[in-house]
């Protein structure tokens, strides 16, 4: 396993902080979007887009590129922010998000946004589609890896587990699912809406390799992604324990911030907290 110098960790943490700031600004500007699940996923998306995924923004259709499917499509803001930072889309588009003429849709649209591998927004599709992409890689002898990011509430949908059975049957070790386990969904805490625990055990029983980490700890994320790549007989799920609304005190662990945009004053307070350390 690679050893990661502190400088890289710090750089990626800074990327995560920028994704949070840009996401909230985008959501505020169009007065729509999903702050809670954007903030909880910032480190995971930063680790993938600024370190782990093999991508070439000049060739968004490079056959050997790694594939990332945002199964929890409502976290589109940090995805768009990452795609802009990597040069897949012009940064000017971020501030037009939500306008009728803007190609960026409320949820990711693969036909309108370079770098978006798959259209999403209706929850539940990532694992099964990821399994198909992983099978395709195997058939073609390509070496790309497939990653999909889910919400924990999303895992209440049966289709997730149907996909999990398929990935296990074909021992798709080139598929990694990451679950942003922030414990809160739209209507409230996951354990109240529909309990999922023991969650990691469920995946184990489905014959997946399971890695449980702190999803805000950059080193743990990178090491888990490396470990997943070294498991050759089954798909891996990274159960990333996170905090919904992470980084903005009044949004943390609060379902009310699932799909509501901050107003001017709230944005200012949020940015103050996020920029405080800089």
């Amino acid at each position: 396993m690679a050893h990661y110098p502190e400088s890289l960790i710090t750089e990626l943490e800074e990327r995560a902080r920028q994704l949070r700031i840009t996401s909230l600004e985008m959501i505020h500007r169009r007065a729509a979007g999903h702050p809670g699940g954007a903030l909880s996923a910032a480190e995971i998306i930063a680790a993938l887009f600024f370190h782990k995924l093999r991508l070439d923004p000049a060739r968004p259709d490079w056959p050997e590129r790694d594939r990332f499917i945002l199964s929890k499509g409502h976290a589109s803001a940090p995805l768009y922010a990452a795609l802009a930072a990597r040069g897949f889309i012009p940064a000017e588009e971020l501030v037009r998000w939500g306008d009728l003429s803007c190609p960026l849709q409320g949820h990711p649209d693969r036909l309108k946004t370079p770098g978006v591998e798959m259209t999403s927004g209706i929850l539940g599709h990532g694992v099964a589609i990821g399994a198909g992409l992983a099978l395709s890689a195997r058939l073609r002898g390509l070496h790309y890896r497939v990653y999909t990011l889910l919400g924990d509430g999303e895992c209440q949908g049966g289709i997730v587990w149907e996909g999990a059975l398929v990935a296990a049957k074909y021992r798709l070790s080139n598929l990694t699912a990451i679950v942003d386990c922030n414990g809160v969904q739209l209507d409230g805490p996951v354990h109240e809406v529909l309990p999922l625990e023991p969650f990691a055990d469920k995946w184990r029983m489905f014959n997946w390799a399971v890695l449980e980490i702190n999803g805000h700890n950059m080193r743990q994320i990178l090491e888990a992604l490396d470990t997943a790549a070294e498991i050759h007989d089954r798909p891996t799920v990274i159960v990333a324990r996170t905090t919904k609304g992470k980084g903005v005190s009044f949004m943390e662990n609060n379902a009310a911030w699932h799909g509501v945009a901050p107003n001017d004053e709230q944005l200012a307070r949020a940015l103050q907290e996020l920029k405080g350390g800089a």
């Binding site: 849709q105 409320g106 949820h107 649209d109 927004g121």
Partner: peptide
């Protein structure tokens, strides 16, 4: 659900 787009 104009703001969530065609998926919604």
């Amino acid at each position: 659900d104009y703001k969530d787009g065609p998926t919604h």
